[in-house]
Design a protein around this nucleic acid. Sequence first.
DNA 1: TATTGAAACGCACGTTACGTGTTGTTTTAT
DNA 2: ATAAAACAACACGTAACGTGCGTTTCAATA
Lengths: 244, 244
Amino acid sequence: MYTIGKLSKNTGVTVRTLDYYDEIGLLTPSAKTDGGHRLYDEEDVMRLERILALKYMGFSLEQIKDILQHSPSTWQQSIQQQLEMVKREQERLKTLEQTLLGVYYSIEFEKDIDWSMIFSMIKLYQQDPEDIFQDYQAYLTDEDMRKIIDMNAQMSEEDIKAWTEINETIKKHLHLDPYSDEAWQLAERWISERIFGHDEALLGNLTAALSDLKEGVVFYPITKDVVSFIEHAYMAKQEKGEIK
Amino acid sequence: MYTIGKLSKNTGVTVRTLDYYDEIGLLTPSAKTDGGHRLYDEEDVMRLERILALKYMGFSLEQIKDILQHSPSTWQQSIQQQLEMVKREQERLKTLEQTLLGVYYSIEFEKDIDWSMIFSMIKLYQQDPEDIFQDYQAYLTDEDMRKIIDMNAQMSEEDIKAWTEINETIKKHLHLDPYSDEAWQLAERWISERIFGHDEALLGNLTAALSDLKEGVVFYPITKDVVSFIEHAYMAKQEKGEIK
DNA sequence: TATTGAAACGCACGTTACGTGTTGTTTTAT
DNA sequence: ATAAAACAACACGTAACGTGCGTTTCAATA
């Protein structure tokens, strides 16, 4: 039989936490002294170990109470749900990391932040992926969209840095004459940044989509103004007959 | 000028949230009607966009208040801290995912859960990695430890499933005579499970460490009882002169 | 201008998993 | 027997709001 203090020392759980678990009925001591002090036996210790294990796995105390009431055969379902939550959370953190990197380099190259872009991006992410697809379904094939999503997911820190730099550079030179050599050089750098892997069909469809839709952002970090700049430089080059 | 209701509709933020932001001084409307109703202008809208962007990035409202008071040049530091937090969180979720998978397959193969193992594991993870290393430094080289950590990080779901299965199988047959063929077959399966990549030196050091240390778990999911079983089967085979 | 329904205000209590602090009681050590 | 330590029980605080609820103000109609 352990007093609450001994149990606390053995498990590393604070007395207040055990107090709380008693209060919410998650772990009630199986005995008490005449004076009312709580006494925990081996079975209680086992239950506490289970509670801590489940807590580590990310379950709430309420869920833990439920789980421990049921038989182990039903636990697999809870664990699978938890696994899915963990996977979703990992994806969220991945896109969050990319966002933070994008903003970081955005400050580095521009000394300022494109807030409205980030805001549009958030609204984009908060939508159901299905809904986003619908907006672009008229312009992009399923294959196209898969490519963009993959592209987004696989960007390394270096990719994001390079991509942010060329985009910020272009934003500073939006006023350039599309027919000028400088504009075309920027456009070439943008296109060759292996983001699209020289997939000109995809690029064409995307520019078409962007011309018609109002939002400034498609998929991070592609903004309408930059794509429009590229498009114009591209068309100018075609007019001059230097590309087909 | 927007009323709180209009602003709410435009941004998707609830009125109560705007109410709260006003209350904590995060977003105070720049004007009010005679009757006391709040009026937000364009600048307020911009500030709200920034707040939402920073919130999306994982900052607390308190942090956001601080950040928005400072100049953009100091923001990079905050973003980097946030990036580090995100990376740490991702690592936590990765090990958590592996734990959940381990438990999942543990139920599948054994119809029961080794709670004390999970509990030891938690205590292990809660320790400073430095402290864990210290316990094993007498037995394992830095190279060894790096291998184990890599091995742990790179396990796929399939690896975990296979690994859990062989471990659970062995746990059911701990009573087998180390000199028996069955014991040796299990030991061979365990060793060849590409976890150690036939690294017998590492395996030897690890068994030595496990013999002396009390904890049941080293690095998930390697438990003392199983390693001990392998060791005995291995020694039996050596005695019989069938391996060197 | 009076009325009325919608919008907004302000206040308070609920949420999660405890931390921190206080006061009074029980246990343990001397 | 007495001092010191441990414990019980209660209350308030945290973060970021959600959810009422009664009251006041606004905007549009009669």
